[in-house]
Amino acid sequence: MLTLENIDAGYGPTTILQDVSLDVKEGEIVTIVGANGAGKTTTLRTIVGQIKPRAGKISFMGEDITRLPAHEVVDRGIILVPEGRQLFPDMTVRENLQMGTYRKAARDNQEQRLEEVLSLFPRVRERLDQNASSLSGGEQQMVAIARGMMAKPRILMFDEPSLGLAPIVVSQVFDVVRQIAATGTTVLIVEQNVFTTLKVAHRGYVLENGRVVLADTSEALLKNDHVRRAYLGI
């Protein structure tokens, strides 16, 4: 469904990703794990077109999307729930969710989908008319995910959904991710929280210094010596 082939990318003269290849199949949950600064966020930003790769090719459903501007990538249903939530602070929660439906394919039946999405997030319903900035970190994360769901994603990508959240909230967030995946939505998730993520995902890629050093099923990665040493301190 989504394929990256030999991607090189970075900011300005700084190269971050080197020769990154990965693919996500329809209905899969795939994770990219790695340390801070390994290039996980850069990978996602390159996929959505916010960073233009220097080399390599990205395709989605057979179409080459390497050079498309971000809004056109999003228009094709590639939705990113960004790191640090990135809500619109001076808009209400409802307006934030409405912004989720900006992409053309998501504009009709807004009310109905709002109901569907809110059924996943009962807490968000109570907050609909509050300003997004008045919410707690966990609530904001839920709104960010709900906003992503509003866009009728064909693939939903999460960038560090557990970042800065209390452990109890983290498990709630992962519950939601599981529920979303259960509806058949394809998910690509980037996390530092290696174990929890690998437990949720089917397959995983390990990124170090901007390179894919390992790619395997989650089970195999959980048993891998290198993963255990590098990400568990074992």
């Binding site: 959505v48 916010q50 990113l80 990135q86 619109f88 602070p89 989720g100 992409r103 866009a151």
Partner: peptide
């Protein structure tokens, strides 16, 4: 309010 997030909304 948030240019980057707006881009992610399409």
């Amino acid at each position: 309010q948030h240019r980057v997030a707006a881009e992610l909304m399409g």
